[in-house]
Amino acid sequence: MKFITLGPAGNNHELVTLRYLDFHGLRDRAALAFARDFSEGAAAVLSGTADFMVQCAVHPECSTTMARSFDGLYALDTFISPSRDLAILQRKDVAQPRTLAVMSPTLGYIDASRWEDVELVPTVSEVTTGLIEGRYAAGVGYASTAQDHPELLRVAQFIGTVDDVWIVYGRTRVTEGRLLAWPDSPASRLYREAA
């Protein structure tokens, strides 16, 4: 069984996909591959070179991926998971950065008005790598990177993580024309307690 998600290795998509595989007891029975983007991942599932794909629901490509259901790619599971803590990271060799590199879904986590320019970058991993390599002076990246590279980076503002919704896609349509929900989910218990 082969799962595919957005690369590169070490990003939130890998972290959360591995958690999902662990939850289902599949870590030792499933291979994990990485795609450059979700169009490539969807094509791999549709062609049979991968069986399932995992995508964060706030990823900018999510609506395009969901539309691939007309090609035979179906959402078959969803789950909620936090990912790596985020922070506004700043290079130590830049006194006052004027541009902030950020993946668009993370813009809502911060007040971007203090930056002259905001540069949209496709992934948090790319922001983080760009900070290490010196392509960006400041950006929303993985907080742990400042600990891993204390000579280069500092945390200008700790953000933390949110509980994102994640979608698992495959070639089998599981809804059979009906609503699929977990009747004894934590949310269901909250509803019963509130009623």
Rank of each mutant, 00 (worst) to 15 (best):
F3T: 06
F3Y: 15
F3H: 02
I4F: 01
T5D: 06
G7I: 06
P8N: 07
A9W: 02
N11P: 00
N11M: 01
E14S: 06
T17P: 03
L18I: 10
R19Q: 12
F23R: 10
H24F: 14
G25M: 05
R27C: 02
D28Y: 01
D28N: 12
R29I: 02
A30I: 08
A31P: 04
L32V: 10
A33I: 01
A33G: 14
A33C: 08
A33M: 08
A35G: 06
R36F: 09
F38Y: 15
S39F: 10
A42G: 15
A43Q: 14
A44R: 13
V45R: 03
S47V: 01
G48S: 10
A50H: 05
D51K: 06
F52Y: 13
F52D: 06
M53Q: 06
Q55I: 15
Q55T: 12
C56K: 11
C56G: 11
C56H: 06
A57V: 05
H59D: 14
P60D: 05
E61K: 02
S63M: 10
S63I: 03
T64D: 13
T64W: 11
M66Q: 11
M66R: 12
R68N: 05
S69P: 00
A75S: 13
F79G: 09
P82M: 06
P82D: 15
P82F: 00
P82W: 00
R84F: 04
L86M: 15
I88Y: 03
I88K: 04
L89A: 04
Q90E: 15
R91K: 13
V94A: 11
A95V: 13
Q96M: 10
P97N: 07
T99Y: 01
L100D: 07
V102P: 04
V102D: 09
V102H: 10
S104F: 14
S104T: 14
T106Q: 09
L107E: 11
L107C: 14
G108Y: 03
G108S: 14
Y109E: 05
I110A: 00
I110C: 08
A112T: 05
R114K: 13
R114W: 00
R114S: 02
W115I: 04
W115E: 01
E116T: 01
E119P: 00
E119C: 08
L120A: 03
V121R: 00
P122A: 13
T123L: 04
T123R: 09
S125E: 12
S125C: 11
S125L: 04
E126C: 04
T128A: 07
G139F: 02
G141R: 05
Y142E: 12
A143V: 03
A146D: 10
A146F: 05
Q147T: 11
H149G: 00
E151W: 04
R154P: 00
Q157K: 11
I159E: 01
V162K: 10
V165Q: 05
Y169D: 01
Y169R: 02
R173L: 10
G177Q: 06
G177E: 09
R178G: 09
L179I: 14
L180I: 15
A181D: 05
W182R: 12
S185G: 07
S188D: 12
